[in-house]
């Protein structure tokens, strides 16, 4: 599967590229800084597109799926500013739709659906991309990991709804979950909270 990956400047993005390559997909890395091109190629990207302004059109052409990694931590604190840059997510959704891409995997954060309780619209917008994904008719999966750590992945996770925001998960495991969800039908059109746990990743979606 040819998969466009957005959000490659952080470790999760790098690990997703690597994992995609290992699982015989063709990752297309979208980067903001051209200096990162050799890194992406080395990690296994089949193609690297530099996103200067609006280059998503080129990046998305001939892709079958999009993995969008919105780097954020659930521990960023309650009522802190927007955890997920929804405008960028929505832009990429629009472009994906235009190019006929059906599969869209979004890494959000456990706290993304935090309620707007102090009246500022910014916080209230956090869940907007999630809503839009459903409305646009994508085959979507939203992964909301707990606090990301640099520990090595164990391949064992816990999946569910509304898990404790204090629980952790390694970046390596999150990357594996994102890649696994691409083809796992149990992941289609669902939202998962993910933390480290004791169920192997490929089984976790069925629970």
């Amino acid at each position: 599967m040819r998969v466009a990956v957005i959000g490659t400047s952080e470790a999760v993005g790098e690990l997703v590229i690597k994992e995609l390559k290992e699982k015989d997909h063709q990752p297309v890395a979208i980067i903001k800084e051209k200096n990162r091109k050799p890194d992406m190629e080395k990690l296994g990207a089949s193609d690297v597109v530099i996103d200067e302004g609006n280059r998503l059109e080129k990046a998305f052409s001939a892709c079958d799926a999009v993995i969008y990694i919105a780097g954020s931590s659930p521990r960023a604190g309650e009522s802190k500013s927007v955890l997920v840059d929804h405008e960028e997510v929505i832009d990429s959704m629009t472009e994906a739709k235009r190019q006929g891409i059906e599969r869209f995997v979004l890494m959000s954060a456990i706290r993304a659906n935090e309620k707007d309780n102090n009246g500022t619209t910014r916080i209230g917008d956090k869940h907007k991309p999630d809503e839009q994904l459903k409305q646009e008719g994508f085959v979507f999966t939203i992964i909301r990991p707990g606090h990301l750590t640099d520990k090595p992945g164990k391949g064992m996770i816990r999946m569910g709804k509304s898990l404790d925001i204090d629980s952790e998960i390694s970046k390596e495991d999150v990357a594996s979950v994102l890649v696994e969800s691409l083809n796992n039908e149990s992941a289609f059109n669902k939202i998962f909270d993910v933390t480290s746990g004791n169920v192997p990743i490929h089984e976790a979606f069925n629970h």
Partner: peptide, 15 residues
Amino acid sequence: KQRDELKVDNTEKVK
């Protein structure tokens, strides 16, 4: 220089 502009190879993490 910004972090993204450095000519560094961090592709193979060390455990």
